[in-house]
């Protein structure tokens, strides 16, 4: 990935160059050597500016680090890890930005020592869900005199999966939605809260120290942990119907439906529900739509829905694991 280096001439540099030429012409006409010295100094400034900024920018090494996922309408952080490969020139006053039409906060690196590292953060706000591809990012600086700007661009394509925008879903509202949907039943309630002993197993990285069975570990001369049963959670199946057989068939309505689906999923997972997601009415080559579990997977799936794709009649309809465990979201009909 070889960077692209460019020069940008701005009006201060043009004015300075014009003044230098003017003083040069004046010193050529008059006989004062001091005026020649002033002209020489101005030319020297231009030369030195090029040397220092060139040395600084040539030594600039930048890595961009982005999160895997983001959320539409919310800022996510981009980190630029800057390193100076020069033992001679430190780096000052570098502005970093993405070469893209995005809403990004200005990022400026004040200083990076010679041979050292620095990190700057910037925030980017994706406007909509989907795959946000970041291609090129640029570092630009006018240090030391601001006469000429030098920029270095790196081409480092990276994809950020932007999850749908989420709205606030009240827990009561969720229960109401689940209860109000046709064919739904009250969520399965389980009583009791004791955790059942299952057995002992070997220690794995990440296990809490509190779960270590010390006496057994001492006896076996290796760490073992107690494995207990976790209480079963309430189950819910959320079906997003994008078949356009009913409801409003506009893209805006479908986007709203996707956002509400994401909101409901997040709320349900936060409340301890065991949630499954079915995206119905899509993909002509798919005989049965997948049942998705896990919030991250579900949000990823919602993020990559392409509304331009062909539709088909719903295959699964409303799935119920048990009475009162299904929620069907239809665009334009979701309250």
């Amino acid at each position: 990935m070889s960077p692209r280096r460019r020069y940008h001439v701005r009006w201060p540099g043009l004015v300075f160059a014009g003044l230098a030429l003017l003083i040069g012409a004046a010193s050529a006409q008059r006989t004062e050597n001091m005026l020649v010295w002033v002209f020489a100094s101005m030319l020297a400034w231009i030369v030195v500016s090029g040397i220092i900024s060139g040395g600084m920018m040539m030594a600039l090494r930048v890595r961009r680090r982005t999160p895997r996922v983001a959320r539409a309408g919310e800022s996510f952080e981009i980190r630029y890890e800057v390193a100076s490969a020069s033992r001679l020139w430190p780096i000052f006053d570098v502005t970093l930005s993405e070469v893209a039409d995005l809403v990004q906060s200005p990022t400026r690196l004040e200083h990076c020592p010679r041979g050292g590292h620095a990190q700057v953060r910037s925030t980017l706000t994706p406007p909509r869900r989907g795959i946000l591809r970041l291609q090129r990012f640029r570092c630009i600086s006018g240090f030391p005199f601001g006469l000429i700007l030098k920029s270095v661009e790196w081409n480092d394509p990276v994809d950020v999966l932007v999850h749908p925008r989420q709205h606030v879903v009240d827990p009561q509202m969720l229960r109401t939605l689940v209860g109000a949907a046709p064919g739904t039943h009250a969520a399965l309630q389980r009583t009791g809260g004791q955790e059942d002993f299952i057995g002992l197993r070997e220690y794995r990285s990440g296990d809490s120290v509190r779960h270590v069975a010390w006496r057994r570990s001492a006896a076996r001369m290796e760490p073992v942990v107690i494995e207990r049963a976790v209480p079963a959670r309430k189950a819910l199946v959320v079906t997003l119907d994008l078949s356009r057989t009913e409801g409003v068939a506009t893209e805006r309505a479908e986007e709203d439906a996707i956002e509400w689906t994401a909101s409901v999923l997040s709320r349900a997972h936060a409340d301890g529900w065991s949630v499954q997601l079915v995206i119905d009415g899509f993909a002509a080559d798919q005989t049965e739509p997948s049942v998705l579990t896990g919030l991250a997977t579900q949000l990823d799936a919602l993020a990559v829905i392409d509304l331009i794709g062909p539709r088909q009649a719903p295959q699964r309809g409303t799935m119920e694991l048990a009475a009162g465990t299904a929620l069907r979201i239809v665009p334009g009909r979701f309250p």
Binding site: A40, S41, A44, V48, I52, W89, P90, F92, H111, R114
Partner: peptide, 24 residues
Amino acid sequence: ADRDLRQVILAALVLSLLTSVAIF
């Protein structure tokens, strides 16, 4: 950063002086 800035300024001064003398 302050030390580096002073060194850069000093380097700029020296380079400017030498370049000015050379051009002169």
